[in-house]
Design a protein around this nucleic acid. Sequence first.
DNA 1: GGGTATATACCCCCAAGGGGGTATGATGGC
DNA 2: GCCATCATACCCCCTTGGGGGTATATACCC
Lengths: 277, 277
Amino acid sequence: MAVPIDTAERRLGQAIAALGTNGFAACFYAWLRHGLDCDNATMLAYFQDRRPEILYVCAAATEVHENLENAYLPGAYLLDPFHDLHVRKVPPGLYRLREIAPDAFTRNEYYAAYYRATTLIDEIAYVSYPAPGVSVHVCLGRDAGSGRPFSAGNIGLARKLEPIARELCIRQWSALTSSGDYADATIAGRVIAAMRARHAISLSPRQAEVALLILRGHSSVSIGLRLGISPQTVKVFRRQLYRKCNISSTAELFALVMPLLSEPPPKTGPAPTPDAA
Amino acid sequence: MAVPIDTAERRLGQAIAALGTNGFAACFYAWLRHGLDCDNATMLAYFQDRRPEILYVCAAATEVHENLENAYLPGAYLLDPFHDLHVRKVPPGLYRLREIAPDAFTRNEYYAAYYRATTLIDEIAYVSYPAPGVSVHVCLGRDAGSGRPFSAGNIGLARKLEPIARELCIRQWSALTSSGDYADATIAGRVIAAMRARHAISLSPRQAEVALLILRGHSSVSIGLRLGISPQTVKVFRRQLYRKCNISSTAELFALVMPLLSEPPPKTGPAPTPDAA
DNA sequence: GGGTATATACCCCCAAGGGGGTATGATGGC
DNA sequence: GCCATCATACCCCCTTGGGGGTATATACCC
């Protein structure tokens, strides 16, 4: 038999042929993996109004998958730098974790409690928007098995493939729908509501916003840059926050707020009254 | 009917009568609670060679109990300041958490991940040794519901009752047995073995010892005092430890080592050879 | 015997968190 | 109109962690 002269094209063809079927993601990944030297893939859809959905997971260690189900999807995703891209509605394209991660990322609690268990040492993601309010992330990772991060060549190639990958994602997942609209303020609102309900602590919007950024692994300086305020002011919010919560460290903040993130978001509409029909 | 003139004595009598039966712990607690203003009780037995056993738990929130089963008993207990009393074989008596807790206790990971969920704000424990190698701790707590720690009067009374409490514990639980003998070095050895097996990282005894103390919430200064070495030296061990583990923060150390503590201890005997009969 | 690992101790530096103040507008409720 | 709250910003301080060195004595293994 003749050796296929261009496997990449053949695989791309297969992926295109599989568009609209359940087999697409696997073919898609087969194509990507052929060109890019990665160990695993996770495809996720983020929405405005509900938790993310797994579109595809390349069979990895079961414990990683468990973590995904038990920690990430219920709430930890809200601290994920990639999810932050969705919130910020960044342009579609290729993003690399180490470039978008907060400055103190590897020493924050999200990283220690969740991300580290994935053993991923490098991760890139194609971000696309197949429908209004819906982000699809195709995450390709290199784990401890490989030992080394993506090479510059790999990154370059991944960037070249991006338009095709984006187009495929948009076609495949255009049927996904979301409603509502949220920015970080929405998540902060959720934290405020949960803190009031569960701990009888009333946070100001700004305090909640700062709390989230702290939990994501931003330093005070980084938070200041993000919010356009002085780091000194961030420190004040932090102090007020700690005082209200009766805590004195980031670790405690994490233990206090993390469980709240897993709670279902309140019904649409701010401050619903109990007697609403 | 005549009102019992001395309820405390009557309850003590009931507890004594219940010695040797399953109902003892409840009667014992009823007596203690009558005099001491506490919200809950947990009675635990610590051994040399296996995980602790629950002797009695005053029905608290289910989530606290879950935490006990899912986190504390499998391994988190190894980071508990109370368990440390068992390891150090302190004299029997009454101990208060806030007095024995490491300096950085409330900002360490054990506290954030486990202890804080108990909502306990003050905790005292009667420590007794009913059998060789067996410690029984009768822990009385005040939780967020009470809002305030134990009063000085309560502590004083608790101290007065200690000889009786100790005697009762010794009589009730003298049948518990343990074997082997361990100090902190044993736990460190377990960490070393697990680190080698699971992560192919070989730690020196001292490095493992420092790791454990860090995880328990000791600062470098506190560790230095405990080990009788300079804080500077502690920092060196810390650096070596982090370098070997390829991490750069306490949070990561916790995420790395915590799961290992839940693993069963290696078979008795130091460094068993595979070909030993 | 010589190299390696370990334990010990000191030096330096910097970043960051945490806690204490004070001050000034804006906003909104009573 | 006044007071409380919030957001903003600056000042001060100290502790801690984390990382970079260097040095010495011991101990163990090849």
